[in-house]
Amino acid sequence: MPRWSKHGRRRGEVAVLQCCPNGARPVGVTPALPTTPDDLARDAAAVAALGVRSFHVHPRDEDGRESLDPQVVAATVGAIRQAAPSLEVGVPLARWVEPNAFRRTGLVQEWAGLPSHRRPDVLAVSVHERGWETVCEAVASVGLGIELGVWTTGDAVQLRLAGVPVNTVRIAVEVTVTDPDTAVAEAVRLLRALQPLPVPVPVLLHGEEDGAWPVLEYARREGFDTRMGFEDTLYGPDGIWTATGNEELIRFALGQPVGPRTGPRRSPRRGLFGGGLRFGRSRAAHRG
């Protein structure tokens, strides 16, 4: 029988670093936000070269709006696959794009009918969304992977009681507390509420906005899978300078050097050390 770590991976498996390049960010929030298939393919190739293994992308139509249309998804995934064939490509079955759970299950069938090089490997489903179990059943029925989003302790308890759906490749624990001084404490609460799971599943832990870097640091120190990209934050770990792109954010996440900071910056905020988060030195990272 395989031996499993406390994080749901087989012993000896290396933690995954996922890139989330755009999310639901509005077009123009930063010039470097990738929205077109070509932009996303460029970023996918860049981060794959750095060792990223998973790419969680929100496809956009020609007007830059999020879309679940099969042809939009096919164009986006196909471009990414051509640029970075080794990447796992994940797409969210977003309720805010299609509120009807039954329609989302229909989309699963349509996506499954796409050519293999143009369909996603993993579909993201959030536990707090009505109908999530039905959607997961539809995903599993066509042989695609599931990334379960857990945002609250209530979500964690619900998942434990319901059981982990078939074809779940990971559970994404999403810390929505953005205060850098308390985000890690919230992460610990979520992780505790999630245990014990009836079956071992890898856990990907990540934060957002000013909580993104403390949570990433905690996740990497504790051996969890994690992620970084413009979906989670627009800023480097100092909290001041706008990142020049997803490649730069991934380099920061890996502890690699980056070029001089010359992009747009925001005013220092109270509560951040020296006006910004100092990667590796945040107080929140030493809690839990």
Rank of each mutant, 00 (worst) to 15 (best):
P120K: 07
V166N: 11
A193M: 06
R220T: 03
D225A: 02
A41M: 12
E222W: 04
N22K: 12
G145S: 05
G207I: 04
G245C: 01
F279H: 13
V16M: 15
R160Q: 06
P26S: 12
L204Q: 05
P237D: 00
Q195K: 08
P257T: 11
R251L: 13
L159W: 04
N22C: 13
T244F: 02
A44G: 09
R281L: 12
H128N: 15
H206I: 02
P264I: 10
L205C: 03
V127F: 09
P180D: 06
R60A: 00
T226G: 02
V258I: 15
I146H: 11
A124I: 14
G259S: 04
P99A: 02
L50Y: 07
V127S: 01
A94C: 10
Q82Y: 01
F273P: 11
E62W: 11
V188D: 01
G263V: 13
A284G: 15
L50I: 09
V175N: 04
R65N: 09
V97K: 01
F279C: 14
W241E: 05
T176F: 07
R3A: 14
R227F: 09
G236S: 12
L93K: 01
P257W: 07
V52K: 00
A187F: 08
P59S: 00
A185P: 06
V89N: 08
T36Q: 05
A94R: 13
Q71F: 05
W111M: 10
D179H: 01
D38Y: 11
D61H: 02
G207T: 00
T152W: 03
R287Q: 15
T233H: 01
R11G: 09
M228A: 02
G271N: 09
G154L: 10
D232V: 08
E247V: 05
A84M: 03
V169T: 11
H58R: 07
A45S: 14
C20I: 15
L249M: 13
H206L: 03
F102P: 07
Q158S: 15
S86L: 08
E208A: 09
E217G: 07
G154E: 13
T176S: 02
S267C: 13
P2R: 05
G263L: 13
A162K: 00
G163Q: 06
L87N: 11
L17Q: 10
N22Q: 13
S54D: 15
V97H: 02
R130C: 11
V97C: 03
T242V: 15
Q18A: 14
P2C: 09
T226A: 05
P115Y: 10
D39K: 04
H286C: 14
T226S: 12
G8L: 06
V97G: 04
R11F: 14
G276S: 13
G28Y: 07
G236K: 10
V122P: 06
G275L: 13
A124E: 14
L204R: 05
A32T: 12
A32Q: 14
M228F: 01
G131P: 05
E110G: 01
G23P: 10
V169G: 00
D39H: 12
V72H: 08
V177N: 05
G274C: 11
P214G: 05
G106S: 02
P70I: 02
R160T: 07
E217N: 04
G239T: 04
Y235P: 00
P99H: 00
H56D: 06
